[in-house]
Design a protein around this nucleic acid. Structure first.
Lengths: 245, 245
DNA sequence: TCAAAAGTGTTGACTCTACACCCATGT
DNA sequence: ACATGGGTGTAGAGTCAACACTTTTGA
């Protein structure tokens, strides 16, 4: 218990003026492909609200940093990956007044695509951090903290939709050079479909700037050609979900 | 100046616990079509920060309401339109620490599409409310408050992209029955292109659930056929920006 | 030598654009 | 009657899915 003070001192201390103040967190849906399965990083909550449940990594934004900066800081703290090695974009903001028992806490959700890494560093207020199969996480009997089921559902749909028209799928790959099969398997895993290899390659190569050939194959197979990401910012015309019939 | 109190009372009063508190606003990009021009609602700021500049309508969220609810409340307060008469979706959240001189204030931006209405009710802290041509607003010599130029730019791109694949263009129209020409003119105005009437109609009608015929034309023209929005949630395959070559 | 994976070629179905053309009505 | 705008028909270009086929190497 502290001493008595004037309201003005508190307003200054908490950076309050004439508007209501709320808590703002960033929460990350960190997707990766692990053993051919689309997976997401969850952290077992160690702190009070929702203690013991699995939750998205994240934390409160500091009032000196941009939201994107806060998200990339969390990514580095909780996953140990820098922006160079991953992809990060804002998803949506969630602000139902009942979503957090501590009060009115708004969550700015981000989606990250990262290559699979074995060692995940658990955050300070977390007991445990682990990658889970996404389908498993979204099944009915998997208990998630807060409204994180909704955030994950939205994030998954964003990823599935966005790789259609944005060249970001390669962020799932460990190396920055890759084969056409590796790239195709990313799409097959994320969409949960089979794609015809020949048509996939043709489509990818027909989009200017999607991939660049690094090393041609030794005439053909068993030493497959290597590619790296090109400089295109959009895939046009987009790839199509759905796969073979 | 108030009396001395304990910190706990303040923490309770301001709903603070062990996390930093920030201000959260919702800001609306309200688009309409006025005299064949894509227009956006701006309000001349009457209050302190950025006083006299034009800004997006919006305000602080109350800690008892959902973000979407806050946005629709602002829409009703500042434009006088209900959700039934308009379209509202979350755009993105902006949280640069320097974006507002009052402190760390995060803005959750929404985009609204509304039919053109003549009387716009100015909010309490506003001198003046007015619809402006979007191109004029985004020209270099138009002074906007905060980071609202960026928000408007992002909102405009969202609208231009979204009408390709979501059946929301009809929210720009005053009546809920409309002619094919009226719908086409919405697309032409938003995209700033000319579209071939015949192909546009064929495309629209080929998408199941995009529009329903309300009244067939009196065999053909001068009493054009009337349509209303169908029950489709997406336009697939999407319409294409670009128009005639 | 055979299986597996890379990569090419081809065909039929579908789609889109451009443009010609027809139709009905208000003036 | 004719200009105007709604609406239909169609030919050519392009795209896509499916699938057969060739090539190369590891086992």
């Amino acid at each position: 218990m502290t001493n008595a003070q004037t309201e003005e001192e508190f307003l200054s201390k908490y950076n309050l003026k004439d508007y209501p103040s709320v808590g703002v967190t960033v929460d990350l849906s960190v997707f990766t492909i692990r053993d051919g399965e689309l997976s997401i990083l969850l952290i077992e909550r160690g702190g009070h609200p929702e203690k013991g449940k699995w939750a998205l990594p994240g934390g409160f934004v500091e009032t000196t940093e941009d939201l994107f900066t806060a998200a990339s800081r969390e990514l580095e703290e909780e996953v140990g990956l820098t922006l160079d090695e991953s992809y990060l974009e804002q998803l949506q903001t969630y602000g139902n007044p009942n979503r957090d028992k501590r009060g009115y806490i708004v969550s700015v959700a981000y989606v990250a695509l990262v290559p699979h890494i074995s060692g995940v560093t658990a955050g300070s207020d977390a007991n445990n951090a682990h990658f889970f199969n996404v389908d498993e996480v979204l099944s009915d009997d998997f208990e998630l903290a807060f409204d994180h089921r909704q955030i994950i559902t939205d994030g998954l749909e964003r990823v599935r939709a966005k790789i259609e028209y944005a060249p970001i799928a390669h962020h799932f790959l460990t190396d920055d050079v890759f084969t056409m099969s590796e790239l195709r398997k990313v799409y097959e895993t994320v969409w949960g479909v089979d794609l015809t290899p020949s048509n996939f390659r043709r489509k990818v190569q027909s989009v200017k700037g999607f991939v660049e050939t690094v090393k041609a194959s030794a005439k053909s197979n068993r030493q497959p050609a290597l590619y790296k990401a090109g400089d295109a910012e959009v895939i046009y015309p987009p790839l199509q979900r759905g796969g073979i019939s």
